[in-house]
Design a protein around this nucleic acid. Structure first.
Lengths: 107, 107
DNA sequence: CATACACATAACTCGTTGGTTATTGATCAG
DNA sequence: CTGATCAATAACCAACGAGTTATGTGTATG
């Protein structure tokens, strides 16, 4: 449970996978064919990436006839947000000056 | 610049590297020897990881005599926060669009 | 000056992974 | 029923990445 960011970071590490996820976030529901058309890789590659994203909970699939629609689940990004704010939090707790933190975050 | 999350995701994808970064965030300044002691890998491995983290801007090094101290730079996480909120934002805006549509259909 | 120490770099191994083509399973059209 | 289409799976391969041991570079110390 405390390791849920492990699978997330791994899933989002690959650029092709991020591109697919970004597209699903921007444009919503997409069939595999539609995603493949925009991607620079073959359909099996896209399917494999979607499998990884699904495993990470980042997408959901829905079958309609002979095509499969995928949808982004941005809520699954929560553990990642938690992790980053925890890191920033550790950092912050070692400094009493909040403004100093914000300045560093700004740069 | 707009692709700075590429190197970030890649740097944070590895568990050993995240562990090192987490430790630097929690406990602050650390020498390579101190980090190696806690890590489950050899000193050269730790050095290599630190190199990657440094490349990503996540850590900074400071030389003191014959030892090197590393410090976390959590501000470098900003592009990652941007990315995640952008993904959530896309999602939210499409949700808003749907709400607008439904409102218009109502009247 | 010689030795020990801290860290970085080099050279290499090996498992993982992202890509491919070929094939299968399922569904729709004629 | 037949052929075409969409997606998933299988089988394979090349490249990459994280790990190791060995060595190099620089600094403190006797």
């Amino acid at each position: 449970m405390s390791k849920s960011h492990e699978i997330l970071f791994r899933a989002l590490a690959d650029p092709t996978r991020r591109a697919i996820f970004e597209r699903l976030c921007q444009d919503g529901d997409q069939t595999v064919a539609a995603l493949t058309a925009r991607a620079k890789v073959s359909q099996p590659a896209v399917s494999k990436h979607l499998g990884v994203l699904k495993q990470a909970g980042l997408v959901r699939d829905r079958h309609e006839g002979r095509q499969t629609h995928y949808t982004a689940q941005p809520g699954a990004l929560a553990p990642l947000v938690d992790w980053t704010s925890r890191m920033a939090g550790f950092w912050q707790s070692r400094f009493d000056d909040l403004e100093d933190l914000l300045k560093r975050m700004d740069q």
